[in-house]
Amino acid sequence: MSTDPVAFARALGLPGLVDVHTHFMPQNVLDKVWAYFDSVGPLTGVAWPIAYREEEDRRVDLLRGFGVRAFTAMLYPHKPGMARWLNEWAAGFAARTPDCLHTATFHPEAGAPAYVREAIDAGARVFKVHLQVGDFDPNDESLREVWGELSDAGLPVVVHCGSGPAPGRYTGPEPMRRLLARHPRLKVIVAHMGMPEYADFLGLAERYDGVHLDTTMAFTDFAERLAPFPAATGLKRLLDLGDRVLLGSDFPNIPYPYGHQLAALARLDLGDDWLRGVCHDNAARLFGLPLPSVSQGIHR
């Protein structure tokens, strides 16, 4: 099951889509990420073919062709000493790609507060951290100043903190509970809806106004086989949190067409108003994007 993204947005009266979870990074790093997914079968028990294994310019064109009017460059270090140069690359990518929300990252290390401030001063609008790949506790003392700086700046941080597709030493809800108790105003976007600990991360969103959830891979046929969403208890909670659920896709690292994520959201049957918020308006408000009149339409 898939759907045409442009037709989907147009039917909702939207000027396009805002996707808060797309990956652009230096090619040598992306090659390693793709190699990981090529061998991910032993971790998940299923094959994970990359649907959009294309050159960078082609991937940008594809997103624009899907009617995506704003997207991110989710990138993250797997060890100390990588984050600053990843941030430098991301700043250059955002400068040459105006529809990309300038993305940055960090890792627990002595220089993190300084290079996070540099990234903020350079115009970063969203940060990304991956607790499983980075193998670190978000409550590491070296990050106390970083989280405080991001909280004060009101900048969202997309955090891969759920235990899917494979658990890490610091994944799951408890490290994030401790972080949010220390920084309750922090704007966190929980990647993948916190898969598979959906209920726990819904609870954090219900408790903290700054906690958002991105839909990345959730509800798709692929994810439902691995980590089914608890629809009986979760759909009403999703509806109630409708202004803090954001479209994410994981493009290009998805094993199905881009439009399948949209079709999976539509089949939840939570209504057009919910879909409009999730697929565009919630992220537009969060990132201060202009909200053009629907008469402007979207273009391939």
Rank of each mutant, 00 (worst) to 15 (best):
F37V: 11
H102A: 15
A35P: 07
P98G: 12
L43E: 05
E55A: 11
G45A: 09
A95Q: 14
V60C: 06
T97N: 11
W34T: 14
W48Q: 10
A73M: 14
R96G: 05
L43T: 02
A104F: 08
A35Y: 03
T44M: 06
G41L: 02
M74K: 13
W48I: 03
P98L: 10
G67W: 01
A83R: 00
P98C: 06
Y36K: 01
R53N: 02
V60I: 12
T72Q: 03
F37R: 11
Y52F: 01
G45Y: 05
P49R: 09
H78D: 10
L75T: 08
L62H: 12
G81A: 03
T97F: 05
V40S: 15
Y36E: 05
A47W: 05
R58L: 09
V68I: 14
A90R: 03
S39M: 12
E88C: 06
M82T: 01
T103F: 02
D38S: 06
A91L: 05
M74N: 13
S39P: 12
D38N: 09
A90N: 03
L43D: 08
W85Y: 12
F71D: 08
E55G: 05
H78Q: 07
D61C: 09
M82C: 01
W89N: 05
D57V: 15
Y36I: 03
W89P: 03
T105W: 00
D99E: 15
L43P: 00
A83Q: 00
L43I: 02
R58F: 04
M74Q: 14
A51P: 08
F66M: 10
W48M: 04
E88A: 13
G65K: 02
G92C: 09
G65Q: 03
G92Y: 12
A83C: 00
D57R: 14
V60Y: 09
E56G: 03
P77K: 00
H102Y: 15
H78R: 09
P49H: 08
M74I: 12
P98V: 09
W48L: 04
P80F: 07
A91G: 04
P42H: 10
W89A: 07
R64C: 11
N87F: 00
E54I: 00
F66C: 14
A73R: 09
P49V: 05
A73L: 13
A47Q: 06
L101A: 12
W34E: 14
V60A: 03
L75F: 09
G92R: 15
A51K: 12
G81Q: 01
R69K: 15
P42D: 10
L86F: 15
L43A: 07
W48K: 11
W89V: 03
D99C: 10
G67P: 02
L75D: 07
R96D: 04
G45R: 05
A83M: 00
A35K: 10
P42L: 08
G65H: 00
A95T: 12
R84V: 04
L62V: 15
M82N: 00
A91P: 01
F66I: 05
L62K: 11
E88G: 13
G81V: 02
F71P: 14
R59H: 07
Y52T: 03
R58Y: 05
N87T: 02
R53F: 01
N87H: 01
R96F: 07
G81S: 01
Y36T: 07
D57C: 06
D38R: 13
A104S: 13
A70R: 15
A95C: 04
F71I: 04
G67L: 07
D61M: 11
G45I: 10
A91W: 12
